[in-house]
Design a protein around this nucleic acid. Sequence first.
DNA 1: ATGCCTGAAGGGTTCAGA
Length: 290
Amino acid sequence: MRRVRIATWNVNSLKQRLPRLLPWLDDRQPDLACLQETKLTDDALAELLGDDLAARGYTVAIHGEGAWNGVAILSRVGLEGLLAGLPGAPGFPHQEARAISATCGGIRVVCVYVPNGREPGSEHYRYKLAWLSSLREFVAGGPEATVVCGDMNVAPTDDDVFDPAAYVGQTHVTAPERAALAELQAVGLRDVVRDRWPNERVFTYWDYRAGMFHQDLGMRIDLVLAGATVAERVRAAWVDRQARKGRRPSDHAPVVVDLDEAPDGDIGPVVPPPSAPAARGGPGRLPQSS
DNA sequence: ATGCCTGAAGGGTTCAGA
């Protein structure tokens, strides 16, 4: 049975991460990859790796700007109905490149990079909350077969940070942020990684400093939120910690979710890469330790 | 050290990230 592999990864600069991204695509073989913090204009991204992605069979949807933000969807299960940005979303002061959506393999894929918030109570924090509200309204009007992937910049609960005491008074863990995320999920989205690992220590981000990754002192802020018809197809959901190791990693690890074929067999047009190696099955468990 | 790394822009330093 053919499965569809969805991944989301905050790459923290595609330009800097190129030596990590391409081998990761070859190794993990995601059919859909949602990327955040590309930090490239659309033209620069196409110039930098358009050919490399096309050679791997990916159609690419990009929404970027010069130095900050930037999101992209790579798909080899079709890509249609492309929408760059989040309609009606607030800006800071102008709209930033933080969302892109498309229908891929019968699934409405929404790739997001939620604003950081900087400091609770700040203008940027209010912007973050308003942006999350716009995202909820947008998703509420969409199909059930939706998946919202990306860097939510919110840890859903205290179980999603290494030490709640370390984050008192900081963004990502405040009640209003968690409420905004819960309201988004209340539209009908499952947190598929937490569903699969209800009691595990699972993080997706570790600060670069002070050996935080090697001590496993992180947060789970990169999420895959799936509507019911997608969530019930989930067969594996895990964090690719290998991608956080080694030379010049992003500070975020990818989240990988495997879906069984849709009941009606409709997974959209599949375009195999011209000369791809055989797809490997990924681990069905969390690679939490080396 | 309460910004401990990393990246970007721009210029020899500052801002942003979570």
